[in-house]
Computed example of a mutant assay.
Amino acid sequence: MAYKHLFFDLDHTLWDFESNAKQTLQELHVALELNTHGIDSFDAFYERYVYHNTRLWERYRKGFIKRDDLRWKRMWHTLLDFKTANEKLARSMDTFFLDRLPTRTLLFPHAIEILEYLRNKGYALHLITNGFETVQHSKLKYSGLTGFFEKVITSEGSNSLKPHKQIFEYALHKTGATVSESIMLGDDIEADIVGAKNAGIDQVYVNHKHITPPLQPTYTVYALKELENIF
């Protein structure tokens, strides 16, 4: 297959969301003095935040909640687990988190190297991300990834979300690519792999966590460096 357009996911695929988020939440825990609100253990706080963030992102993807509800209510529900019903604090936590998170720069190993390799081979590189427009562009800027991508398609900009077919169709229209010359590269089976498959687009499952997938992607890699074996 003669691919010309490579559509990358950003979070958890190139940009190490989990590590960057954990660093930011550690800073938040100290700066906002959460220990004075009954949250002494950062590990306990982090575990509950991850639980609520995952659950609310799933609801957001399915259209059950709005963006702003996702942002502050993941903090609100986390506080409630520690018997703290403080909406002002939850909103302050949201602001702190989204101000600092995009400035983090941790990438998965060989991210820059593989993007340079693919660009030098003549592929057109793009992003399809469910993240928020301003936040995602800030991540790209601070981590040195901006210059690699010709088009950045966000859920906010496209008015759709992976895995819905519409965001992939929007990406093809925006880039002038066809289905046959395009491939999606991402870490999320539902959003990236199933979504692309349903849009007729081939996929590379970037399986950093060595998870056994419930379906067979077009390709699977376990590290970004392995993309050299495909392209």
Rank of each mutant, 00 (worst) to 15 (best):
R104K: 13
L115S: 03
S138Y: 08
L118P: 04
G131Y: 04
I112C: 00
T95R: 15
H110I: 02
F96Q: 09
K139D: 05
L125K: 05
V135M: 10
R104T: 12
H137D: 05
D99N: 09
E113A: 11
I114Y: 00
H126V: 14
T105R: 13
I114F: 03
N130D: 10
L101S: 12
F132C: 05
F96G: 10
L127N: 00
E133H: 07
L140D: 05
L106M: 12
H137K: 11
I114P: 03
L107I: 09
G122D: 15
D99S: 08
Q136V: 04
F108M: 04
F97P: 08
R119C: 03
L107K: 05
I114R: 01
F132K: 00
G122Q: 12
T105M: 12
L101W: 02
K139W: 08
Q136N: 06
R100E: 07
F108G: 01
K139T: 06
F108V: 01
K121I: 13
E113P: 08
I128L: 08
L98T: 08
P102N: 09
K139G: 06
A124W: 08
T134W: 06
T103Q: 09
T105L: 12
L140T: 04
F132P: 01
A111D: 02
F97A: 09
K139P: 04
F132G: 03
V135Y: 05
Y123C: 07
N130A: 06
H126W: 09
N120G: 15
L106S: 07
E113H: 12
E133L: 06
F132M: 08
K121N: 15
V135Q: 13
F132V: 09
Y123D: 09
Q136C: 05
L118W: 00
L115V: 07
H126Y: 10
H126S: 15
A124I: 13
H110Q: 11
T134C: 04
F97R: 11
I114N: 02
T134E: 15
H126M: 13
E113N: 11
K139F: 14
L118E: 04
N120R: 14
T95K: 14
R100C: 10
Y117K: 02
G122S: 14
H126R: 15
N120F: 13
N130K: 02
T95A: 15
E133D: 09
L101H: 08
T95I: 14
L127A: 00
Q136F: 00
F97E: 10
R119V: 00
G122M: 14
E116D: 14
F108A: 02
